[in-house]
Amino acid sequence: MGWLAALLTQILHLALVLAAAPLVVGGIRWLKARMMGRQGPHPLQPLRDLAKLLRKRPVLAETASWVSRAAPYLGAAAALAALALVPSFARGMAFAPLGDLVVIAGLLALGRVAMALAGLDAGTAFGGLGAAREMSFAAIAEPAFLLAVLSFAILAGTTGLEPIGALFQEGSLGLRVSLGLALVALLAVAVAENARIPVDNPATHLELTMVHEAMLLEASGRHLALWEAASALRLTLWLALLSAIFFPFGTAPAGFAPLGWLLGIGAWVGKMALLCLALAAFENAIAKMRVFRVPEFLGTALLLGLLGALLLFLSTRLA
């Protein structure tokens, strides 16, 4: 019975996040437009775009190899696999034992490498430029992420996502500066990983300022659809990760509990909507920074993670 509930939770979770991913992207776009006083595209527009792209005939560059064809599937699979491990509305999912933060970082790296290789495959100038920048920025974002993970590991004694979420939900930790710093660091990493303003502009059409989009210039048809889906899934993943760690309120406990699940789904949708709103407001309030300011930005996130761990030693030593 227990495993059945776990499996059911997992399937529901997958369905939920798959439905949420295009809505998150479309919702943020719509909110941003509304805040700027524009009408904005319909929130479901990304879904329509995906459906359209899937029907189109992909055109591969003559110089492209099988890497261009295989990488989109790998990228989407990595994002989806990582998202399957991050709890949304309930604990005790079938894949919960796999949900480790370091593993999630590894899966994200897998998706990133797949995308960088796809960008390099056709041998064009912009693809290589985007790949070089993406990998270089990740070189600083990854340690920042792991330092934030260190703070959780010190508090929870593990890097497992579920124990961390359960501990934070219990609330015995209180408010902690280190957690705040870890949150700031994670936010900066999330912004960089998802190619959002101020690090990158998801709506840019100027190749020289692109990071993420520059690698996808040669993709078309279903390959482009898969890349777009992967980036939507990654954005959903980061928002879900933030809400699973920092705002685990309302998450249903493990086991078969339809009412708790309903409440959990409601709470999760609410949290995700709030995070989308915050992201949209943030993006509207800030301008894109120069590419070579990005290392400084991410370096600051890294240092904040470091500071968080230091302050955690301070407070754990006091008790």
């Binding site: 029907r55 005939r57 992909p58 591969l60 599937y73 100038a125």
Partner: peptide, 29 residues
């Protein structure tokens, strides 16, 4: 196994009604 399953899912979704790809010169902006 999870990665393989997800790749299979992506493959199934993307390939179901997709036409075969063609080759062309690189777009390169």
């Amino acid at each position: 196994a999870l990665l393989a399953a997800m790749a299979a899912l992506a493959w199934w979704v993307a390939k179901r009604r997709a036409p075969a790809s063609v080759r062309g010169p690189a777009w390169d902006c």
